[in-house]
Amino acid sequence: MWLSLCVGLMWGLPGVAAESPPVAEVAIPEVWPWAYEGSQGEPVGILPLFFERLSAAAEVPFQMRLRPHRRALKEMGSGAADLAVFYDSPHVAEGSVRVASVASTRVLLAVRAGEPVPEALDQRAAGLSVGYIRGTYYGEAFEQAELIHKVAVQDLRQAIEMLRLQRIDAVIASEHVFRYTLAAMGLDDALFSVGVAADRLPASLYMSKNSALLGDLPHLREALRRLHESGELQQTFALP
């Protein structure tokens, strides 16, 4: 229950008050629909829902804070944040310990309908201008692609509008963000030709290497296992 075994045993002793579990600081990268600010300023979206369910399963309170992607990484590195969910990448591994995988998505490359989709981000995509959400990791192929022109945007809505106005040639995004964004904009898939830039981009729960809660990794992993067995984890990260 997020406490040491000795404290857990003390709960049953007369006259000994149970200690409250420490609050875990959670940094959530603010990228729609993964996480964004609700009408009352509260974090809402897929990741806040995930952390609500994990909090209930682990019986530990979380303090969730929306952060720009780079700030979330920085806070995890310093220990200002205990937990975060990121796509697996070398940048995340530098300051964090991987707790467990929580989801997986494909990376899609979309162009205007009727236009050819490059089969890979190599010479076949040379000169292509590609819109992407600033700070997001899309796999090593995109990281190392030097022959394309990368256009950073705040959110995928902006990139899709730029694509429709022919200001860029393509957009790259996780399948979750792409599908949710099209649904929110009321756009049909038929407006785009879509290819797969990466078959699998895993996302995991990470804990800061400087977190005071490192000893509780087994407890978190067990809570995630229960969420997986109940189907809540898959339901949380399901495509629209």
Rank of each mutant, 00 (worst) to 15 (best):
M1A: 02
M1F: 01
L3Q: 11
S4M: 05
C6S: 03
C6Y: 05
V7M: 01
G8P: 00
L9S: 03
G12Y: 14
L13I: 14
G15L: 02
A17F: 11
A18I: 00
S20W: 14
P22Q: 05
P22D: 08
A24L: 14
E25I: 05
E25R: 11
V26G: 06
A27G: 11
P29A: 02
W32P: 07
W32H: 02
W32G: 00
P33W: 07
W34N: 02
A35E: 02
G38M: 04
Q40H: 02
I46D: 02
I46W: 12
L47Q: 13
L47M: 11
L49T: 04
L49P: 00
A57M: 11
E59C: 03
E59H: 10
P61K: 09
F62N: 08
Q63I: 07
Q63W: 12
M64D: 08
H69E: 05
R70S: 09
R71Q: 11
A72Q: 13
K74G: 10
E75N: 06
E75M: 13
S78K: 04
G79D: 11
A81Y: 15
S89G: 09
A93R: 14
S96E: 10
S96W: 14
V97Y: 15
V99E: 01
V99N: 03
A100P: 15
S101L: 08
V102Q: 06
S104D: 05
S104R: 06
T105S: 11
R106C: 13
R106T: 07
R106Y: 12
L109I: 14
V111D: 00
A113S: 12
A113P: 09
V117Q: 00
V117I: 07
E119H: 06
D122E: 04
Q123W: 11
R124V: 10
A125K: 03
G127M: 05
S129W: 00
Y132G: 04
G135L: 08
G135N: 12
T136C: 08
G139D: 07
G139R: 10
F142R: 12
F142P: 13
E143Y: 11
A145D: 10
A145W: 15
A145N: 10
E146P: 14
I148A: 02
I148N: 04
H149R: 09
V151W: 13
A152H: 12
Q158S: 12
Q158I: 06
A159T: 14
L165H: 13
Q166M: 08
R167V: 02
I168Y: 14
I168W: 15
V171M: 12
I172A: 07
I172E: 13
I172C: 13
E175Y: 14
H176S: 14
V177D: 15
R179M: 13
Y180N: 04
L182D: 08
G186K: 01
L187V: 13
D188A: 13
L191V: 00
G195D: 08
V196N: 09
V196L: 07
A197C: 04
D199I: 03
D199T: 06
R200S: 06
A203R: 09
S204N: 06
S204M: 10
L205I: 08
L205W: 12
L205A: 12
S211Y: 14
L213M: 09
L214Q: 03
P218A: 01
H219K: 06
L220N: 08
R221Y: 07
E222W: 02
L224S: 03
R225Q: 05
L227A: 03
L227F: 07
E229F: 06
G231H: 08
G231D: 02
E232F: 01
E232H: 00
P240F: 06
